[in-house]
Design a protein around this nucleic acid. Structure first.
Lengths: 136, 136
DNA sequence: TCTTAATACTACCTTTAAGTAGTATTTAAT
DNA sequence: ATTAAATACTACTTAAAGGTAGTATTAAGA
């Protein structure tokens, strides 16, 4: 019951960049600060650029910054981009979809925690992650 | 954000067996009913036997049954057995452990959904999974 | 006692996620 | 112009999860 590694890294990268208020961040430093392997970080970053979370400036003095205000990037968007599915009708036992018509054996117990989780991911933006509680 | 495949299968297997009120179930039939590959099912079942969720009877007319009352097998126990970690101090961003002293950037938002999830898994037994809502 | 139907064991294969390597491209500074 | 420092691209390797194959063992029933 975990987010996959790539998603975890992506959130940390975006969260860190969101805290640097528009100042360009480069891959080398990010890799050191966040303790994410350089080559893996750049790979993920390229996906974040393509999916328009991040704008990259190439060449010397280049780097990365957010493509839109931190308040407009929801954690749920990041999860979706990296295939960490959290859907309303998702069956926790992996038997297709689950709803009130078609329930798996854990369905009723799972409804409430699942909804809380989805709500949290959907309502939390990168802006909400700023502040002293940032951990590396 | 999903349970791993093996855990999902194990819950479904145990849940089905819990609903058969002591009648021995064999791997071949379970495999057909639950649509789980036979060889994979027996592999998981052997682990359930070794970890004392299940008692197996070998030989002709053999099969599987619960090793203890359904009310005493919690879903959380199954998760733990198959490495699906759901712990109080588990960091959702995978940076070691997380607590009120040492917070990752998502910590505060994650606390409540996480606790609900853990509570649900810890308090739900196989007995609670019985009934008409059983889906295959 | 022999056959058959069941679980158990050992070892392997396949797929996917995670991570790495090397080169090409871009651009500011000198 | 040249260099240096940055991102982008293509392809590969590694590790872990998921799944399969074949054989051994067990025990009821004919």
């Amino acid at each position: 019951m975990e987010l996959n590694n790539t998603t975890q890294y992506a959130i940390r990268m975006l969260s860190y960049i969101a805290n640097s208020h528009g100042k360009l961040q480069n891959a080398k430093e990010l890799s050191q600060i966040l303790a994410i392997p350089y080559k893996f970080l750049t790979k993920i970053m390229t996906e974040l650029v393509k999916s328009e979370f991040i704008i990259s400036i190439r060449g010397r003095e280049g780097g990365y910054k957010l493509a839109k205000p931190a308040s407009q990037i929801m954690v749920l968007d990041i999860l979706n981009q990296f295939g960490d599915i959290v859907k309303e009708n998702q069956c926790i036992l992996g038997i297709g979809t689950c709803d009130s018509e078609n329930k798996c054996s854990l369905h009723d117990q799972w409804v409430t925690p699942k909804e809380m989780m989805i709500k949290m991911f959907a309502e939390t933006s990168l802006e909400n992650l700023e502040g002293d509680e940032f951990k590396i």
